[in-house]
């Protein structure tokens, strides 16, 4: 008999919670849940959003965008960062903002179908005492709640390009395949060089960041890439879409390919580099990047494939990123 009562109670509490949110626009994040050991079943337990389905954050949860974003089948991404009250992120040069324990990065993936935005998943990176923890949450059909999906999922979706796909929600381990560096989970996106100066200034003004980091050259803004140098556009794309694995200490380190923005050695970037463990991913090609010949380069061959064992990236890709392929092909053609 205890169980039904508990459910009723939980329902009543949830109802009260909803009322509370409406009654108090100053609702805040449940800071204790962010750092507590555990994996809450529901996204709402964290209190990041005043209105989850509308993706309206509570105070202290700050939206941001990246100059050059990661391609995820054309999904719209809503990114937020939370730094606990009384604490500050530290500027760490051009790279990642150094976010203190208690911080959270929140990223919601959505597709707009028939003029209506549908939230698919929200991925959390929570900075706990033992390190960053990655948790994937899957939105329900009613768009009222997202629940923990440890094993990931596949969700039928239509991309902005009109392609029908089985969109892949990664499992908890797959989070680490991209976010793993030297055995630890780390954020990828919020690097100073990939954030706008004005956003960084606002974030610092609001007291969330100790100072505006020094950035010698920011990554190009993707929508404005036609006005940016071809090499910068391609290298930014490779840094953001590939280098979290293709770098020392990460998932694809054994390939010897290092596609980070700061890498200056052409061989490490794949120029006339033979593949190591590409298997049939190499197709009929001999080198990762053949200067002047994108059609003979393994890099673009794999970017253009959707076949398991060939397609790159290996995760989070059900469609080819035409814009990305074009940017990289243009760079290779001009080498």
């Amino acid at each position: 008999m205890i169980r039904p009562v508990a459910i009723l109670l939980a329902g009543a509490l949830a109802f009260a919670g909803a009322l509370a949110v409406r009654a108090q626009p100053t609702a805040t994040v449940d800071a204790a849940t962010v750092v507590a050991d555990g994996m809450p079943r529901n996204l709402s337990a964290f209190g990041f959003f005043a209105d989850g389905s509308g993706q309206v954050p509570v105070r202290g949860v700050v939206p941001y965008r990246l100059n050059t974003p990661l391609y995820s089948d054309g999904a719209e991404k809503l990114r937020f960062v939370y730094v606990p009250p009384g604490q500050q992120a530290k500027a760490g040069g051009e790279g990642l903002l150094d976010l203190p324990v208690g911080s959270a990065l929140i990223k919601t993936f959505a597709f707009t179908e028939g003029g209506k935005r549908r939230l698919i998943e929200t991925r959390l990176l929570l900075h706990r005492a033992e390190g960053w923890v990655a948790l994937p949450y899957l939105w329900n059909a009613e768009q009222t709640e997202a629940t923990l999906a440890l094993a990931g999922a596949r969700v039928a979706a239509i991309t902005p390009a009109g392609e029908a796909i089985d969109y892949r929600v990664p499992n908890k381990n797959q989070c680490k395949e991209c976010h793993g560096l030297n055995g630890a989970v780390v954020p990828i996106g919020p690097k100073a060089r990939n954030l706008s100066r004005s956003w960084l200034a606002d974030f610092a003004d609001a007291g969330h960041l100790d100072k505006v980091p020094d950035v010698s050259m920011s990554l190009p803004v993707w929508e404005a890439r036609n006005a940016a140098p071809v090499e910068a556009v391609a290298r930014a794309y490779l840094d953001v879409n590939c280098a979290h694995c293709h770098r020392p200490g990460a998932t694809a380190s054994n390939s010897g390919l290092d596609l980070r923005w700061e890498q200056g050695d052409p061989k490490a970037l794949g120029v006339m580099k033979r593949p190591v463990a590409a298997g049939r991913g190499a197709g009929a090609h001999l080198f990762d990047v053949v200067p002047g010949k994108p059609g003979e380069s393994i890099m673009t061959y794999r970017m253009k494939s959707l076949e398991g064992g060939v397609a790159m990236p290996e995760l989070g890709k059900s469609t080819v990123d035409r814009e990305g392929v074009e940017a990289v092909e243009r760079w290779i053609a001009g080498l």
Partner: peptide
């Protein structure tokens, strides 16, 4: 007979 894709060692 060797059936590896040509790019591989």
């Amino acid at each position: 007979p060797n059936f590896a894709p040509p790019g591989n060692i």
